[in-house]
Nucleic acid binder design. Structure first.
Length: 601
RNA sequence: GUCCCGGUAGCUCAGAGGAUAGAGCAUCUGACUUCUAAUCAGAGGGUCGAAGGUUCGAAUCCUUCCCGGGAUACCA
């Protein structure tokens, strides 16, 4: 929502500087007026100078002249080419919190700007449970899906599960060797954790065998672990398992199915806890052969080339990329071959205008290569493929490494957050245990975690300090949730004291004239642009910051202005309505970030 | 070597070429007989990695350099 006087100013300035024939009015996005200046919002005429083809000062003068006479404007002040204006209470509230339904409904893209989008995220391997790194992926992915839908796009969310390959065979082999017929039920463990244990077990055994090789054979002493993999008994067996899998060996397939079902069941629990739903889940075991035909056809069409040894490759010089092998000399696929296939598969399944991959930034080069190849293949939609590359999550002790046991397990982290939320809740309820304490703690704990992960710009590498990151105070999810809980509480008490119809009838918004009340209205005016800018940048961190600021402004208001003990009935009604409107925006924002709100805290 | 991403307060991070560079945490001072203190009000804390350049104006754009991370596979 943009204020009427700003829209009219835009028209007036456009006509004045560009003439009546200008096709579109110059867009004016006002800024929040800084605290040391007098005014509600600021029109920055420096920024308008280029579009209006005039000097900032001249534009500012013109803007002042127009705004001074405007009925919605209380006062204007010019500092250099900044035009600071205060709005009348009537204009301020009418166009913001007095009609929050409209404000929220209006916060969508124009139809022409809506894009049918397909987002792939999560993409787990079925050999170990999810850890904090996956959590960042999942949180970014689900929030992005939610945000793009919120502003009106048609979005399809898909997952591509990496359920085959030598890493899966490692877990399978370790299970065969050391599993002793255990199951998740027998072990009392989630399936993904159980399988992950065998993956670790495989690695332990592998390292032991590599060490023995090096000790017993001086030829091997200088070799890398990777070179020695196939020389170890267990490494060779893992490769053999993969060959058996690929040739459909019944026993191998049976074990693979069993263990994968354990893992997937475990993932489903984790997804459900986070609130993740995919429109479609692709399994790599179904899709890994795709792509080969496309490459062979590309060779026939002269798009790809064949090397003397038989390998087929793409020449990507014109994209400033190296040659990329697409089929090995033995004509087997490589990683990118599958991706060519699944990209096309996803396109054919959903016909999106844009495809987004939420994948870590170590794969930037891979996606550049993939997108270039899709362009070479001549798909006209290949210009709208986008890799949302997010940074790693590091610990104070350094990188997370499964092998060294330094990963932060996702399920354990959830439990820890929820338990801390529960303790914090219990501490403040004077021995009286709320009936829905578990549900409440779940919402607070997960909200804190998601909010923390979304606070950062996706491309930054996050430092996750368990001590510092698990917090419920300061700019955290619970801080915003708490404001909603406070408003709920006020609402309940108001109804108890003054009856259910406490907020009915006309609201006189102009009674809300303190700086704390006005601040809430001013901030709320920026909600639409915040959402749209976040969606455009594919980055929720701006929305997170907005919610913190609005929540902060409410807490200040809460201290300074009593709702239930307001001086008059009319004022009380107006403040109740104000609070309800703020809550509606906070709820809309948190829900867009896929964060829930507890009834009370 | 080449390419990509970072470097802003003690720490973690925000900062559409625009006003005196901000927030949270930590430290310090104050506020619960009060609509929920998971809160609020305030203080201290900065050579925006360095040096040049462009501009009326640079943390932001350009160049060079330094530091950290990643990529540069016929691994996934």
């Amino acid at each position: 929502m943009n204020f009427k006087c700003i829209k009219e100013l835009s028209g007036a300035l456009t006509e004045s500087f560009l003439g009546a024939t200008a096709i579109n009015n110059v867009e004016i996005l006002p800024e929040l007026c800084p605290p040391n200046m007098t005014g509600d919002i600021t029109v920055n005429c420096f920024r308008l100078a280029r579009d209006l083809r005039s000097k900032p000062d001249v534009i500012a003068e013109k803007a002042i002249a127009f705004l001074e006479g405007h009925e919605d404007v209380l006062s204007v002040e010019r500092v250099k080419a900044f035009v600071n204006l205060s709005l009348t209470s009537k204009a301020l509230y009418t166009e913001t919190l007095a009609d929050t339904d409209e404000l929220l409904k209006d916060a969508v893209l124009d139809d022409a700007d809506k894009v049918k989008t397909l987002i792939e995220y999560s993409a787990p391997n079925t050999n170990k449970p999810l850890h904090l790194g996956h959590l960042r992926n999942n949180t970014l992915g689900m929030a992005l899906v939610s945000l793009l839908r919120r502003v009106g796009n048609d979005v399809t969310a898909v997952n591509l599960v990496n359920d085959r390959g030598v890493h899966i065979c490692k877990s399978m082999l370790a299970y065969k060797l050391f599993g002793d017929g255990t199951t998740p039920e027998k072990a009392g463990k989630k399936g993904d954790h159980l399988v992950g244990d065998f993956y670790v077990k495989f690695d332990e055994e592998l390292r032991k065998q590599i060490k023995e090789l090096k000790e017993n054979n001086s030829d091997f002493a200088e070799k890398s672990d990777e070179e020695l993999f196939a020389k170890t008994e267990i490494g060779a067996a893992a490769q053999e398992t993969l060959i058996k899998w690929e040739s459909n060996d019944p026993e191998t397939i049976e074990l693979w199915k069993t263990m994968n079902s354990w893992v997937l069941k475990g993932f489903d629990e984790t997804y459900e806890r986070m609130g993740i739903k995919f429109d479609k889940v692709y399994l790599e075991s179904d899709t890994y052969k795709l792509g080969k035909d496309i490459v062979l056809k590309g060779l026939k069409d002269g798009i790809f080339k064949k090397r003397d040894d038989g390998a087929i490759f793409a020449d990507l010089k014109k994209y400033k990329l190296n040659e990329k092998v697409l089929l090995r000399p033995d004509s087997t696929s490589v990683y990118i071959t599958q991706d060519i296939g699944t990209t096309l598969l996803k396109y054919n399944d959903f016909h999106p205008e844009k495809q987004i991959w939420v994948v870590g930034d170590e794969q930037i080069h891979h996606f550049k290569t993939l997108f270039s190849i899709m362009k070479e293949l001549g798909y006209n939609w290949a210009d709208n493929l986008y890799h949302l590359a997010y940074g790693m999550v590091n610990l104070p002790s350094g990188k997370m490494k499964s092998r060294e046991g330094t990963v932060v397990d996702a399920d354990n982290l959830f439990d820890e957050m929820v338990e801390l939320a529960k303790q914090a809740t219990l501490e403040r309820c004077n021995g009286e245990i709320p009936e829905n304490i578990d549900n409440r703690s779940e919402i607070i704990g997960l909200g804190a975690l998601k909010f923390m992960l979304l606070k950062f710009n996706p491309k930054t590498t996050i430092m996750f300090d368990p001590q510092a990151s698990i917090r419920f105070e300061g700019d955290t999810g619970p801080y915003v949730q708490y404001v909603c809980a406070r408003i709920n509480s006020i609402q309940r008490k108001a109804e108890d004291q003054f009856g259910k119809d406490v907020c009915e009838g006309n609201i006189d918004w102009e009674l809300l004239d303190t700086k704390w009340e006005r601040k809430l209205a001013i901030l709320s005016a920026f909600y639409k642009n915040t959402l749209l800018a976040s969606a455009e940048k594919l980055d929720c961190s701006g929305l997170v910051a907005f919610l913190i600021n609005l929540a902060k402004a409410f807490n200040s208001f809460y201290r300074e202005c009593s709702v239930l003990n307001a001086e008059t009935v009319e004022l009380r009604k107006a403040r109740l309505a104000l609070s309800a409107s703020v809550r509606a925006i906070l709820k809309d924002g948190l829900n867009t970030l896929t964060i829930n709100i507890p009834e009370a805290m």
